[in-house]
Amino acid sequence: MQQQTKIILFFIILFLASSIYLFTIDSRYNDSAYNKNWYSLSFVEPKTDSLNFTIENFSANTNFHWELLTGKEKIETGDVEVQTGEKKEIGLSRIMTDQKMTVRVSSGDDIQEIYKN
Protein backbone atom coordinates (compact mmCIF):
# COMPACT_ATOMS: atom_id res chain seq x y z
CA MET A 1 0.00 0.00 0.00
CA GLN A 2 1.21 3.48 -0.87
CA GLN A 3 2.66 5.52 2.01
CA GLN A 4 0.21 8.38 1.54
CA THR A 5 -2.76 6.00 1.50
CA LYS A 6 -1.54 4.61 4.81
CA ILE A 7 -1.42 8.12 6.28
CA ILE A 8 -4.94 8.82 5.06
CA LEU A 9 -6.27 5.53 6.43
CA PHE A 10 -4.58 6.20 9.76
CA PHE A 11 -6.13 9.68 9.83
CA ILE A 12 -9.60 8.34 8.99
CA ILE A 13 -9.46 5.51 11.53
CA LEU A 14 -8.33 7.84 14.30
CA PHE A 15 -10.97 10.41 13.44
CA LEU A 16 -13.69 7.75 13.37
CA ALA A 17 -12.58 6.34 16.71
CA SER A 18 -12.52 9.80 18.24
CA SER A 19 -15.84 10.83 16.76
CA ILE A 20 -17.63 7.63 17.79
CA TYR A 21 -16.27 8.10 21.29
CA LEU A 22 -17.60 11.67 21.39
CA PHE A 23 -21.00 10.45 20.20
CA THR A 24 -21.14 7.89 23.00
CA ILE A 25 -20.69 10.54 25.66
CA ASP A 26 -22.60 13.43 24.14
CA SER A 27 -25.92 12.65 25.79
CA ARG A 28 -24.56 12.21 29.29
CA TYR A 29 -26.42 15.30 30.39
CA ASN A 30 -29.64 13.35 29.83
CA ASP A 31 -28.30 10.25 31.48
CA SER A 32 -29.51 9.77 35.03
CA ALA A 33 -26.24 8.03 35.82
CA TYR A 34 -24.49 11.37 35.40
CA ASN A 35 -27.30 13.59 36.69
CA LYS A 36 -28.38 12.33 40.03
CA ASN A 37 -28.93 15.54 41.84
CA TRP A 38 -32.00 17.42 40.71
CA TYR A 39 -35.70 17.36 40.03
CA SER A 40 -38.15 19.85 38.60
CA LEU A 41 -41.51 20.94 39.91
CA SER A 42 -44.03 22.64 37.66
CA PHE A 43 -47.68 23.49 37.24
CA VAL A 44 -49.46 21.47 34.59
CA GLU A 45 -51.43 24.54 33.51
CA PRO A 46 -49.38 27.67 34.17
CA LYS A 47 -51.96 30.10 32.82
CA THR A 48 -55.08 28.91 34.68
CA ASP A 49 -55.90 28.65 38.40
CA SER A 50 -55.43 24.85 38.32
CA LEU A 51 -53.03 23.64 40.99
CA ASN A 52 -52.19 20.29 39.39
CA PHE A 53 -48.45 19.89 39.34
CA THR A 54 -45.74 17.61 37.99
CA ILE A 55 -42.58 16.27 39.55
CA GLU A 56 -39.88 15.19 37.11
CA ASN A 57 -37.13 13.31 38.83
CA PHE A 58 -33.46 13.27 37.81
CA SER A 59 -32.14 12.45 41.25
CA ALA A 60 -31.35 9.15 42.91
CA ASN A 61 -33.91 9.93 45.63
CA THR A 62 -37.31 8.62 44.55
CA ASN A 63 -39.43 9.62 47.55
CA PHE A 64 -41.11 13.01 47.50
CA HIS A 65 -43.29 14.71 50.08
CA TRP A 66 -45.59 17.51 48.96
CA GLU A 67 -47.62 20.16 50.75
CA LEU A 68 -50.27 22.61 49.53
CA LEU A 69 -50.34 25.91 51.41
CA THR A 70 -52.84 28.75 51.38
CA GLY A 71 -50.86 31.72 52.53
CA LYS A 72 -48.78 30.11 55.27
CA GLU A 73 -51.40 27.52 56.23
CA LYS A 74 -50.86 23.92 55.22
CA ILE A 75 -54.10 22.51 53.83
CA GLU A 76 -53.12 19.30 52.08
CA THR A 77 -50.09 16.99 52.09
CA GLY A 78 -49.05 13.77 50.42
CA ASP A 79 -46.21 11.46 49.53
CA VAL A 80 -45.35 10.24 46.08
CA GLU A 81 -42.74 7.98 44.58
CA VAL A 82 -41.20 9.05 41.30
CA GLN A 83 -38.57 6.82 39.75
CA THR A 84 -35.37 8.35 38.41
CA GLY A 85 -35.89 9.59 34.86
CA GLU A 86 -39.69 9.59 35.21
CA LYS A 87 -42.32 12.21 35.91
CA LYS A 88 -45.59 12.08 37.80
CA GLU A 89 -48.59 14.40 37.79
CA ILE A 90 -50.43 15.11 41.04
CA GLY A 91 -53.99 16.36 40.75
CA LEU A 92 -55.36 18.88 43.26
CA SER A 93 -58.83 20.33 43.49
CA ARG A 94 -59.26 24.03 42.74
CA ILE A 95 -59.62 26.28 45.75
CA MET A 96 -61.40 29.61 45.64
CA THR A 97 -59.23 32.03 47.57
CA ASP A 98 -57.48 35.35 47.15
CA GLN A 99 -54.45 34.10 49.00
CA LYS A 100 -51.21 32.86 47.51
CA MET A 101 -51.36 29.10 46.79
CA THR A 102 -48.00 27.38 47.19
CA VAL A 103 -46.98 23.84 46.34
CA ARG A 104 -43.92 22.83 48.33
CA VAL A 105 -42.10 19.60 47.53
CA SER A 106 -39.26 18.11 49.50
CA SER A 107 -36.95 15.26 48.63
CA GLY A 108 -34.17 14.65 51.11
CA ASP A 109 -32.78 18.07 51.97
CA ASP A 110 -33.88 19.67 48.72
CA ILE A 111 -37.05 21.77 48.86
CA GLN A 112 -38.68 23.32 45.78
CA GLU A 113 -41.70 25.59 45.63
CA ILE A 114 -44.05 26.85 42.98
CA TYR A 115 -46.94 29.22 43.59
CA LYS A 116 -49.86 31.10 42.11
CA ASN A 117 -51.04 34.43 43.46
Binding site: W38, Y39, Q112, E113, I114, Y115, N117
Partner: peptide, 10 residues
Protein backbone atom coordinates in the same frame (compact mmCIF):
# COMPACT_ATOMS: atom_id res chain seq x y z
CA UNK B 1 -48.38 39.59 43.27
CA UNK B 2 -48.60 39.71 39.49
CA UNK B 3 -46.04 36.91 38.97
CA UNK B 4 -46.69 33.20 39.54
CA UNK B 5 -43.77 30.87 39.86
CA UNK B 6 -44.83 28.02 37.58
CA UNK B 7 -41.63 26.00 37.25
CA UNK B 8 -38.85 25.36 39.71
CA UNK B 9 -35.59 23.49 39.79
CA UNK B 10 -32.29 24.26 41.47
Amino acid sequence: KNFDQVYSST
